[in-house]
Nucleic acid binder design. Structure first.
Length: 137
DNA sequence: GCCAACGTTGGC
DNA sequence: GCCAACGTTGGC
């Protein structure tokens, strides 16, 4: 089991929209970054991730699960891009902001804190447990 | 809205 | 294969 973090601008695709998709989930398309794509290729069905709102909020707002492994991105006209599908699992009790992560010593090596531009990131088990706890889950 | 950081592109 | 130019992201 691996843990991840999915970043989205709520203006483009928000947690509420993700929740509205329900069990069916939604294609995490539109990613045009090799590192992010490679992380998606490494994902397995059942892997869990944080859903993070960038720009507006700058906080973790929910938990998602990978429900389909990487396959061609329907939003791409170039075959090199593919993506997974994710579904909402549960909302957080309390959002965990970027600032919270920066001030928590256990999260000092978190990718979110050090490379905020990467849109799909790996999360370690320790970070996963820490953020979950901070989120009130 | 600005700008720093980063990734990608393309000319050489 | 290098690197300058350019585009994008995302925190502030």
């Amino acid at each position: 089991m691996n843990y991840w973090l999915f970043k989205s601008e709520p203006d483009t695709w928000s947690w509420d929209q993700q929740v509205a998709k329900g069990e069916e989930g939604e294609e995490w398309g539109g990613v045009r970054n090799y590192q992010a794509r490679n992380f998606m290729r490494a994902m397995k069905v059942g892997d869990l991730g944080f859903f993070y709102h960038s720009n507006i909020g700058k906080e973790v707002v929910g938990i998602v699960e990978v429900c389909r492994e990487s396959e061609p991105d329907s939003t791409a006209d170039d075959p090199r891009w593919d993506c997974v599908m994710i579904r909402a699992v549960e909302p957080v009790v309390r959002p965990v902001t970027l600032e919270d992560c920066k001030t928590e010593p256990a999260l000092k090596d978190m990718v979110l804190v050090n490379n905020s531009r990467l849109s799909v990131q790996p999360v370690t088990e320790t970070e996963w447990k820490t953020v979950r706890k901070m989120a009130g889950l």
